[in-house]
Design a protein around this nucleic acid. Structure first.
Lengths: 201, 201
DNA sequence: ACTAATATTGACCGCAGTGGTCATTATAAA
DNA sequence: TTTATAATGACCACTGCGGTCAATATTAGT
């Protein structure tokens, strides 16, 4: 039952891609096995049903997020650096599993009654924890007094998200993935600098 | 053939919603007629096929975008005000057709070979024109010299997008739509102010 | 090299839902 | 009341669905 790790990853990635693309109900197991390059029989040997597969993926992703949360360095009180560190970790994970975060977002929006409740149950706690931990022990005294800190942080997050999207569309043009990572990080710092310069005293 | 305008809007909105949700191929005409509250026969009387309906929607949306482009006031050289004006126009349109912009975005990403080429052909020019017109005659001299203007504008756009998403999730909580519009605009101005204060001299 | 145990396959099943049709019915105009 | 037009939904052939399982390929043990 324990197959080679990279085959496991193929299946996980293929399934996540299909679920992100089509949602739980419309996602096709035929499409998943095609993308993962395994037979249909194998998929249903590993997971007894589409639902079991889906829940497995949820749990898998939740564990990944929990791993990130644990690694947050609470001694880093500068929110820009805090966020940058998390961003780096996310980037690393996306090398292996490009769809983890998209999958969790799509799962939160999933409407199918068959899985909706169990999703909420599994995802909501880790979401709450992550946002709590994310801003724990941040030093807000570095912000300019005339700025709405909450809104500033929202802008920072939106910028990160937008920058991430942009990066995603460029990743194909790089042949070397680690070269991309360096470039990406360097460019992010320039955006981060702009906002830091704007928001900090 | 010319039915009541609000019925037309129902059909357009229902179809756009379904296409956004599922893409061209997986979108279901059954689902569309259910959402639009018309019979299947009627839909296929108005449009001979799913493809014809889809292309009609594309053209309809493109016309809306062209309407916006025409209305851009080129005398407004302040990019913050320029963008705010466009935002207001978009907001108005979204009252009637909540999915226009999402539909165009999803159409750009559409992969189905049956419609891909015709989409490109119809959408790309209007996209090019809109981005061109958007930044035409903007006075960049108001930006601080030490700031990368291109990046600043990117941040502005990402912030607008993020703010729009946030607004979308809140719109249900308002009973009066125009009250929401006021609130929304007012709140946007506070975000806009933050960035303006950061980016301008 | 042979056997037993395990892993993988894909043709196949019943069925749900597809895009599209058209005889029939409801509505409006004359 | 008659005629012209608009709207309906049962129906069709068909595709693709989630899931199964006998047959095959691979591996492990001796």
């Amino acid at each position: 039952m324990n197959l080679k790790p990279n085959k496991q990853e193929d299946i996980i990635n293929a399934a996540m891609r299909e679920f992100v693309q089509s949602g739980f109900e419309r996602a096709s197991t035929n499409e998943i096995v095609k993308k993962a390059e395994i037979s249909k029989g194998s998929l249903f040997n590993y997971f007894n049903s589409k639902k079991v597969l889906y829940i497995y993926l949820i749990e898998y992703c939740v564990q990944i997020i929990e791993g990130i949360i644990e690694q947050i360095d609470l001694n880093e009180a500068d929110i820009f650096k805090r966020i940058e560190n998390i961003g780096i970790k996310k980037l690393c994970i996306q090398q292996k599993f490009p769809q983890v975060f998209d999958f969790l977002i799509s799962a939160k929006q999933e409407e199918s009654a068959e899985v909706r409740d169990i999703i909420k149950e599994k995802i909501d706690p880790v979401y709450d924890e992550s946002t709590k931990r994310m801003y724990e022990n941040i030093d807000y005294s570095m912000f300019r007094e005339d700025i709405d800190i909450g809104k500033a942080i929202e802008i920072l997050n939106w910028t990160m998200f937008g920058f991430g999207e942009k990066g995603l569309s460029q990743v194909d043009t790089f042949e070397n993935i680690s070269e991309f990572g360096e470039q990406y990080l360097k460019e992010w710092k320039s955006y981060s600098e702009i906002l830091k310069h704007s928001f900090y005293k």
